[in-house]
Design a protein around this nucleic acid. Structure first.
Lengths: 123, 123
DNA sequence: GCAGTCATACGATAAGCGTCGTACTACGGT
DNA sequence: ACCGTAGTACGACGCTTATCGTATGACTGC
């Protein structure tokens, strides 16, 4: 049986991950987190796959350490949620929190990103 | 009679200001431009005063050079439009261009900023 | 237990950014 | 013609960031 993630939510062990409380999320920081092509790509991928995604499921033209870095930025600024599931780490957008704080913002950014992607090389 | 701004739109004189074409505006850059508390404040002020605003009409707790810097960032990333009117420089949001490129984005950001401002110290 | 895989940590590096002060330029009024 | 005001240019400073490579840690499967 794999690790029981139910009873081990955010333990203080070596594999704990800090997420900001909803009330601590700041607009400028969210925008900053989104203001990077690589991270925008990550967020788009996470939004597309409504469920959770493994880090490696998103192909990025950067090294693994850089990838980790971007995921951390997104997490620390409250854009995504990460949790360990065995050997992998699952990532998901914090849609509910963001919607509650800044209604429509994320969807606006995602729509804008999709539009621009279509306008440019249909990435 | 003051300078005839009608016949002198974007002259190549010493006081010309470069604005990116609408097609050259990039989402990541717009987000980056907005991802700063000071600039967010500027944009909010410009949005509130629907018309045009003098640089000095917005009180900012930074030096004059820093102020110039922020305005330039906003202009070069396509968020605002600046033009000289005599000794002053008028600033306005590029609402139409942004709306055309990223419909709903700016309004979403502005609403989010207003919400957060209300939530925090009612700035 | 051991090896493989996924991801982190850490250090390094180079670039970028926000801030400032001072010196300079352009315009308008007196 | 002068001076004051509004804004820019430039250089400097310290901090943050994006990137990498390598070494390390955690879990799975053999």
């Amino acid at each position: 049986m794999p690790t029981d993630t139910t009873s081990a939510r955010a333990p203080s062990g070596p594999r704990s991950l800090e997420h900001p409380d909803r009330a601590d999320i700041r607009l400028a920081e969210v925008l900053h987190a989104l203001a990077d092509p690589m991270r925008l790509r990550i967020v788009r991928a996470l939004a597309a796959a409504e469920g959770e995604l493994n880090c490696a499921d998103i192909e990025l033209p950067v090294s693994k350490s850089t990838c980790t870095h971007h995921f951390r930025v997104l997490r620390e600024h409250g854009v995504i949620r990460q949790l360990y599931r065995g050997t992998a780490k699952m990532n998901g957008l914090r849609r509910e929190d963001l919607e509650e704080l800044f209604p429509g913002l994320i969807d606006g950014v995602l729509r804008a990103a999709a539009l621009q992607a279509g306008r440019l090389g249909e990435e």
